[in-house]
Every structure is written in C-alpha cells, then in structure tokens.
C-alpha cells in the first residue's frame, strides 16, 4: 500500500520537512500490516529496511550466551524500528509484533540515496534516528543501574 506525504508528516520528526522532501520519502515508503506474533526480522539478518510504527507493539529480543533470549525493549506507536538499516549493518535484535501492528516501511537503500542527494532530508532523517538512539542509550543506562534491584 502506498503512503501519502501527510501520513509521514504526522510523525513529529518529519513534520517540518518541505512538501517535496516528504513526497520523496513517501515515494519509497509503503504501509504493512502484521498479525500478532509475526516475526518482523531476526537478529543477525542482513541489512534491511527502516520502519516507523503506526500502531501496535513490537518486542525486541536479543540472544545472550548462557542466558537465553531476553526481551530488551518494547516499541510502540510513533517509534522508529530497525535503525541499524541506516548503517547498512546486520540486525542487532529480533523484532516480533506483540499485537496486530501497522508499520511504515522505508526502503533503506533508496532512503540513504535520497539522504545523500538531498542534505536537508539527510539531516532530518539522521537527526530523527540519532534522537531515537540517544533516548534508547539513556534508557539503557537506567536499565543497567538496576534501580529497582536490591542494594
């Protein structure tokens, strides 16, 4: 299903992009619907696409040697999923839809090419991803503090 510019503009990080830039991103974005429990991608998968969650909950899990598979983060409405796509790196975590989930899927190669050719768009997309990764880093530090654990 194709995506219109105004759908993209409803996400805070993209709202201020000029109309033509939004249209360019929209042209490489499609909407997907996933049933609960569908696997979206797996840890170690080859570099894939970038997603924005329109609606639903997505669980990220990682395998840790000797500790089995652990749920590390839950993502939901409006959040970015699969930022490693922008680095063309293999997936660092597995993603599974916990509920029925609607995603916007952005073709990563085309998006990177657009970013390269139009620095306004490139800056905006990278800033959005950077903010998301910074938030997760901060939250991960709090998780590491184990604030609810016994001292």
């Amino acid at each position: 299903m194709t995506v219109e510019s105004r759908t993209l503009a409803s996400f805070p990080g993209l709202a201020t992009l000029p109309t033509d830039a939004l249209a360019s991103i929209a042209s490489l974005t499609s909407e997907e619907r996933h049933r609960a429990d569908s696997l979206l991608f797996s840890e170690g998968d080859a570099p894939g696409d970038l997603y924005v969650i329109v609606r639903g909950h997505v669980q990220l899990t990682q395998r840790f040697d000797g500790r089995g598979t652990t749920a590390v983060l839950t993502l939901s409405d409006g959040e970015l999923l699969g930022w490693s796509a922008l680095l063309r790196r293999p997936r660092v975590a597995s993603a599974r839809a916990l509920t029925e989930t609607v995603l916007l899927r952005m073709n990563a190669s085309a998006l990177l090419e657009l970013c390269e050719n139009d620095p306004r768009v490139g800056h905006r997309v990278m800033a959005l991803a950077f903010e998301e990764v910074a938030d997760r880093l901060h939250a991960t530090r709090l998780q590491l503090l184990d604030v609810f654990g016994s001292k």
Binding site: H57, T61, T69, T70, A71, V72, T74, A139, Q143
Partner: peptide
Amino acid sequence: HASPAWRGHVG
C-alpha cells in the same frame, strides 16, 4: 528485563 514470553512492555 523479561523473557520473550512476557507480553507487556520492556524498558
């Protein structure tokens, strides 16, 4: 922290 069986939020 949770196992993948946990259906609630992690974070």
